[in-house]
Design a protein around this nucleic acid. Structure first.
Lengths: 155, 155
DNA sequence: CTCAATGCAAACCATTTGCATGCAT
DNA sequence: ATGCATGCAAATGGTTTGCATTGAG
């Protein structure tokens, strides 16, 4: 099996190396699958995807490697429905954050270079090494704000 | 015990009435406790708070009433660390955000007026009515960064 | 060769649900 | 009276962990 050539793959490998962790076949496969995944997914969907691809990697291994994927910036936490933790691939599209409509559940993506920079500056101030972040704005989207407060649908 | 005089309390009562639900002592107490809670909390913290207040309301009842609190706008979903669902009192003032150390779990608070303003501006751009937000930075705090990264401690 | 990674199964634990009883309406 | 609400206990289900085995370095 070929070495991953994507820049993300390199970063993943570097992280493992730097931490003295092993660059196993499973990790390569999980990483590769992430790059094939849709934009949003949860741990179980990733696991199912691997299974469908004919690989036999246990769900546990997927779970155990998610922190590493987060740390190397391959994925970021995302907004999910229900109890599951949702993730999001950080592809060519790059990093972005979310506005979540509390009424209809709709998610709008946004990105602000300025905010990213301020964030980074704050971390430097505190001697904090920033690995990834989670920035969500909750409120009402244009449509729902117009339609004005009916029942607040949960879930 | 006096009737709740807060506007939120009225709204809560109205909602129950409108739905043909009962305005029980427990519901009154839960609601009152929410108004005394800090800005962010989870179901269990709310339950513990009630217990500390000398009331004997079961955890289940707290859980069962959270949807109603959401619906009447007393609280909104927030995001917290770990597996628990976090909530946030609406109308709470003085929002601050957090840096979470992935190694030691330590939480550092920060606040940036500039970021808040940029956030607000982005929302206006999208016609999004911002109610509250969640902004967390994950990484390694000064102490842990110095001690250098070995184990990927989760949690 | 050594220690970390994996798979399996069992454990966890926040949240949910079924059921009998208890109250608000 | 009527039927939703509560408390208890047991169930759920996503995630985590212990342990024996495998495999990367």
């Amino acid at each position: 099996m070929a070495e991953p050539k994507s820049p993300g793959g390199e970063r993943f490998k570097q992280l493992l190396l730097a931490k003295g962790l092993k660059y196993t076949l499973e990790r390569r496969q999980i990483f590769a699958e992430v790059e094939r995944m849709g934009e949003h997914f949860d741990a179980d969907e990733l696991f199912e995807s691997l299974k469908k691809a004919g690989l036999h990697i246990s769900r546990d291994t997927v779970y155990r490697n998610i922190p590493l994927l987060l740390e190397c910036g391959a994925i970021q936490k995302s907004v999910g429905r229900g109890r599951r933790e949702y993730f999001e691939r950080l592809g060519a599209k790059g990093h972005h954050d979310h506005m979540v409509c509390l009424d209809c559940g709709n998610v709008i993506e946004f990105h602000s270079e300025q905010i990213e920079k301020l964030q980074q500056a704050i971390c430097v101030e505190h001697g904090f090494e920033l690995l990834f972040h989670d920035h969500r704005l909750f409120g009402r989207c244009q449509d729902c704000a117009r339609g004005a407060g009916k029942t607040v649908s949960r879930r």
